[in-house]
Nucleic acid binder design. Sequence first.
DNA 1: ATACTTAAATTGGTTAACCAAAATTATATT
DNA 2: AATATAATTTTGGTTAACCAATTTAAGTAT
Lengths: 234, 234
Amino acid sequence: MKIEIKGVNGLDNKEKLIISEIKSLINLKNMEPGEKLPSERLLADRLGVSRGSIRNAIQKLEFYGLLKSMPQSGTFIADLGLTAINGMIDQIINLPTPDFKSLVETRIFLELKLVKFAAARRTEEDLSEIEEVLEKYKFKVLAGEDAVAEDLLFHLSIAKASHNPSLNRLMLSITPQIITDFEKYHVCKSNTALNAIDEHQAIVDAIRSKDPCRAEEKMKEHFSVLYQYCYETN
Amino acid sequence: MKIEIKGVNGLDNKEKLIISEIKSLINLKNMEPGEKLPSERLLADRLGVSRGSIRNAIQKLEFYGLLKSMPQSGTFIADLGLTAINGMIDQIINLPTPDFKSLVETRIFLELKLVKFAAARRTEEDLSEIEEVLEKYKFKVLAGEDAVAEDLLFHLSIAKASHNPSLNRLMLSITPQIITDFEKYHVCKSNTALNAIDEHQAIVDAIRSKDPCRAEEKMKEHFSVLYQYCYETN
DNA sequence: ATACTTAAATTGGTTAACCAAAATTATATT
DNA sequence: AATATAATTTTGGTTAACCAATTTAAGTAT
């Protein structure tokens, strides 16, 4: 039995409630940001839920950098000031689940930058890794087999070579959703197309030459079909 | 007692180990992606750790869209193919902790796009929300008070108006780290500067006029000092 | 044989008890 | 009185038992 993974991000109602309650408590106690949050036990008791639920909610807020748990010490609030904390939590709670178009838009935007950085900053090791992945991709395509995974790894290897962990992280987090949506909407049947090989090769050549502009240009060409799909419905 | 929140992202060694073991198990059993992961109990037993630790690791991978837990049913692997799963997990485990420069670079890159989208897509409601936040910012600055929080909320309100949840999410996740690093490195003392008011106002004007190019231009001006800081050390 | 019903087993989620490290308080020593 | 030391409390992390929904298997009537 297969199942669809969707709504990767986003919080369920219980998480939203607990996070909201935590926010209220921070305000109520007029806590100094940078100080400790009440202990998990106290929070659990105060909100009438288990510690596990509290820990789960804390982990979500840790992802956004608002909290940080220290073993045997406590959970600390980011030193942002109450106003900022409130504003951020409100936005986090109300953040809509990204739709397909947002994801595609983000991916194109991201990858055009990532490939520029990669061309500018790639090491010899990065380059050989990219080329290695490309070879595997070629092999699969020429064998007439499905090469979605190899295509994905090619793009991820470029993201890695960008040497910007922050952007790389975003790339990693939106990639699976895009891939699965792709297959759902049947947007891209060209993963096995032969011309994609040339496009990939052109990108690698630009990266090898350390030519950011050309790299971006070639990536844009590679995304042309996707680009149209994304903006024709505007 | 205050503490510094750092290394927001990134996994600790135990998490890395468990995730790595899960990867091995998926490969060992040659599991079909899209299918169920072994149950938490079985994983905990197999890896010699508690279910809680397994659940923690699963939640991390859920963030990257590789897994999805369904109540009373099981944890499902994203339908990406084994090769892709392996590649992604390897990259996730080895993802470096973003340094300050990466974050600043990402923020500038992000916000230049977010403000363009905001100018193109903002609703009347978005606009009045942005203007409201700006007024609060002005008030604080003119009163000679610290306005870091209000500055932050201004930028977040623009991010929201971009109507791209995916980019907005990234913006939210890097913001606290940047703010705290700012104060640490003393990069920007100009948060209370009067000229920042004019810069913010110019950005809002462009958004009101639905002029994406001008919005981006004004945002670039607003970031000029930061921009220099980010790239002068190149 | 097939379709339907029912009972047992499995699952992720929840709760409560336990652990070791850290922080705090109390005590002793100079 | 100030400082160092030891006992106690508090903390996040871990483990184990429990719950309800789901899934699977067995049973039964058609």
